[in-house]
C-alpha cells in the first residue's frame, strides 16, 4: 500500500561517484524490489522518482546520481532534514525465476542490492563509465564489474533469467541477448501515480505510462 509521509534523513554517504541517502522508514512499506518512491527534492516543484536500493531495518536507502538540480538537492540533504516520500509505486521484478542473473549499468545498479537480498544469492554483473563510478559495486559484494569501453552485455551468458536495470541503450542490448529478461526502465515522471501522463514509453507499439505499467517490464 503506497502512502505519503515525511521522513527524516538518517545519513548521506558517498559511494564512489554516487550518494546513498538513508531515510528513517516511518510507516512506509519498502515494497517489492524494482518498485519506486517519489522523493521531495527541496526547492524544486516536482519530486524525483527513485527505486529502493536497500531496506535495512527501520530504513529506506536510495542511491543517487546528482545529474540535475533535483538530485543535487537530494544529495545535499543532511541528517535530521525531513522530506516527503510517497510510495512504494509501480510494478517491481518478478522473483519467481529459476536461475537469476542481475545486470546493472551505472546508476541503474540502484535497485539491485535490494533485489539480491530478496531473490537469494544471485550472480551480478555491473558496468560503469569510470573506475570512480565502479566503486559503487561495493554495495553488491562479489559482483563482476566492467568499466567502459567494456560493455556489461559482454558478460551475459546463456541460460540465465536476466533481471536488468540501466540506461536505455543497455536495456535494448540486453533484450536482444535475453528476450525473456525483466527490464527496469526509466522516464521523467512528474507524479509517479498515473496522473500526469508524462512518463509515456513505447511498449509493444503503444504509448503507456511507465509508472503504472512498469517500471519493470518484460523484454519481449
Amino acid at each position: 500500500m503506497s502512502r505519503r509521509e515525511r521522513l527524516s534523513v538518517n545519513g548521506v554517504e558517498t559511494v564512489g561517484a554516487y550518494t546513498l541517502l538513508r531515510l528513517d522508514r516511518g510507516t512506509l512499506d519498502p515494497g517489492a524490489p524494482g518498485q519506486f518512491f517519489m522523493l521531495e527534492a527541496p526547492g524544486r516543484l516536482l519530486p524525483r522518482a527513485l527505486s529502493l536500493c536497500l531496506a535495512p531495518t527501520g530504513e529506506l536507502a536510495f542511491l543517487l546520481d546528482a545529474v540535475g538540480p533535483g538530485t543535487a538537492a537530494l544529495c545535499a540533504l543532511e541528517p535530521g532534514d525531513r522530506i516527503h516520500v510517497f510510495g512504494p509505486l509501480g510494478n517491481g521484478f518478478r522473483l519467481d525465476v529459476g536461475r537469476p542473473l542481475l545486470v546493472g549499468g551505472g546508476i541503474g545498479m540502484a535497485p539491485l542490492p535490494y533485489l539480491r537480498a530478496a531473490i537469494g544469492d544471485a550472480p551480478v554483473v555491473l558496468g560503469f563509465r569510470s573506475d570512480r563510478h565502479a566503486e559503487a559495486a561495493a554495495l553488491l559484494p562479489a559482483a563482476e564489474v566492467v568499466v567502459d569501453p567494456v560493455l556489461v552485455t559482454s558478460c551475459i551468458e546463456d541460460g540465465y533469467d536476466v533481471l536488468a536495470c540501466g540506461p536505455e541503450p543497455m536495456l535494448r542490448a540486453v533484450a536482444d541477448i535475453a528476450p525473456d529478461a525483466q527490464l527496469a526502465w526509466e522516464a521523467p515522471m512528474a507524479c509517479g501515480y498515473g496522473a500526469c501522463y508524462g512518463c509515456a514509453v513505447d511498449i509493444g507499439g503503444e504509448l503507456k505510462r511507465l509508472c503504472v505499467e512498469g517500471p519493470v517490464l518484460a523484454a519481449a
Binding site: L45, G70, P188, A190, C196, Y197, G198, A200, E206, L207
Partner: peptide
C-alpha cells in the same frame, strides 16, 4: 489519440511544462 512522443514533461524554475497532446 496516443499523444505526443516523449519526453513530454520538463520542470522549470517555478513551474513545469507538459506536452502530452490530449492522449
Amino acid at each position: 489519440r496516443e499523444g505526443n512522443a516523449p519526453p513530454r514533461i520538463a520542470e522549470t524554475a517555478h513551474g513545469m511544462l507538459n506536452a502530452i497532446g490530449l492522449a
